[in-house]
Design a protein around this nucleic acid. Structure first.
Length: 166
DNA sequence: ATACCGGCTAGCC
DNA sequence: GGGCTAGCCGGTA
């Protein structure tokens, strides 16, 4: 299947997006070189990788890039977090039916194949502190959340917007 | 099987 | 609040 890619202008910069007829299958940070992003797509789908018009980027995500199981469940649950809100690792764990798997959720976030599209930056610690961010570190996480309107109090998200604690 | 590692948490000082 | 510690769980070697 042919793979197309383009830079998409977003609130957080011009991220790379790769896709096929099945949907978006990869994303990468703005500072990623075109060369390495294309290489990633080739590794994932083989040859037939070519630049295309950003206007052709599909809405849908190609979830087939993630094998069924805990990982996919967590990623999909994360994808459902609206911009401007945050959830804790534990909440995400509970959302997929494994309330004690917060740690494992962190591992999934750390290996998110679709950063930005699967908004792993919206997942913070239970106490509101931001926690880590693989695709650019905590500073970038803070910047992204700030851009999305999440109130940040010092190094923490002031509100978790949903269930929350007192 | 088994051991170790990590974007975590809850409980205790 | 801060700094432990011991549990936790799914990957991966």
């Amino acid at each position: 299947m042919a793979v197309a890619y383009a830079r998409r202008e977003t609130l957080h910069g011009a991220w790379w997006v790769g896709w096929t007829d099945a949907g978006v299958c990869a994303t990468a940070l703005p500072e990623t070189s075109e060369r390495s992003f294309a290489a990633l797509l080739r590794a994932q789908h083989g040859d037939g990788v070519a630049p295309a018009d950003a206007g052709a980027i599909p809405e849908a995500v190609d979830w087939s890039v993630v094998p069924d199981g805990f990982r996919k469940d967590v990623l999909r649950a994360c994808a459902a977090i609206p911009a401007g809100e945050v959830r804790s690792y534990g909440e995400l764990a509970a959302a997929v039916g494994k309330p004690r798997a917060a740690r494992a959720v962190g591992t999934v976030m750390a290996t998110n194949p679709l950063p930005l599209l699967v908004p792993c930056h919206r997942v913070v610690r239970g106490d509101g502190t931001l926690g880590e961010y693989g695709a650019g570190g905590p500073a970038r996480k803070a910047a992204m959340l700030g851009a999305e309107g999440v109130a940040l109090d010092g190094g923490a998200a002031a509100a978790r917007v949903l269930p929350s604690r007192a």
